[in-house]
Computed example of a mutant assay.
Amino acid sequence: MKLKLGLCAMLLSGLAYAYDVVIPANQLPANAQSFINTYFKGVTIGLVKKDLDSYDVTLADGTEIDFIITGEWKDVDGKYKAIPTGFLPANVVQKASSTQAGAQIIQVEKEVHGYKFKFNNGMKVYTDANGNILGQKFD
């Protein structure tokens, strides 16, 4: 009986650490704070949630940015509005954008060997780290 109670207690305590915890914005890693201040100048941080391996930041304008635990960006989602792209290599943005004339980038996600772009016309474009187009699909 004691063994079962001990195992249940360990399981429940492990689950408690897996949930997001709301933290103050000043507890973000310095490079994450710098990223926000540089590329989203003038937009305040609305909410910061931390879990075991990442930070989820929601800005006052609705933009969501995911950072890995070291503070490097992983995903920037404008929630259907254009996002700045100055944090990406210019040639990668240019090549991805050239496939979707007139469309704006509303989300970018860092993949293992490249990037996944989502445009406001519903297209997703996958590139390698050099900007070579790997594929695209309508979402």
Rank of each mutant, 00 (worst) to 15 (best):
L134I: 04
M123L: 10
V125P: 00
F138D: 10
G135R: 01
D128C: 02
D61C: 05
V43Q: 04
L7I: 08
T85D: 14
Q100D: 00
L5G: 05
F138C: 06
A32F: 06
E72Y: 05
T38H: 05
H113R: 09
G6W: 03
N132E: 06
P89T: 10
A9Y: 07
D51N: 15
L28C: 01
G114C: 06
G6V: 06
A25F: 09
D20Y: 13
D128I: 03
L11N: 03
T63C: 12
Y19M: 14
V76Y: 07
N31C: 05
N37E: 14
N121R: 12
I36W: 05
G62L: 10
A32S: 01
K95N: 04
L28R: 03
E111H: 03
Y80M: 15
L52P: 04
Y126I: 15
L12T: 14
G131P: 03
V76L: 02
G86V: 15
T127V: 00
S54Q: 14
L3Q: 08
V76W: 02
K50M: 03
S34Q: 11
A129T: 06
G114T: 03
Y115L: 03
K95L: 07
A30V: 08
G86H: 14
L134W: 04
K79P: 03
D77P: 02
F87R: 11
P84M: 07
L88I: 14
Q104T: 00
S34P: 04
N26P: 01
F67M: 00
T58C: 11
P29S: 08
K50N: 00
L88G: 12
E72M: 00
L88T: 15
D66M: 13
A16E: 13
A60T: 11
N31Q: 09
G102L: 04
G102Q: 07
I105P: 08
T44S: 15
K79V: 10
L88W: 14
T127H: 04
I69L: 04
L88F: 15
V93E: 02
E72F: 09
V92E: 12
C8E: 09
T127G: 07
A18E: 12
A103M: 08
V125N: 02
G135F: 05
C8V: 03
N121G: 14
N130C: 04
S13N: 15
F138G: 00
I105C: 08
G114N: 05
Q27V: 07
K4F: 01
G131I: 04
D61H: 01
T63W: 07
K137E: 14
F87P: 14
L3M: 04
F87S: 14
A32H: 05
S54F: 13
G6F: 02
E64I: 08
A101M: 12
E72C: 04
T85K: 11
G6T: 03
I45N: 07
A9T: 09
M10Y: 09
K4A: 07
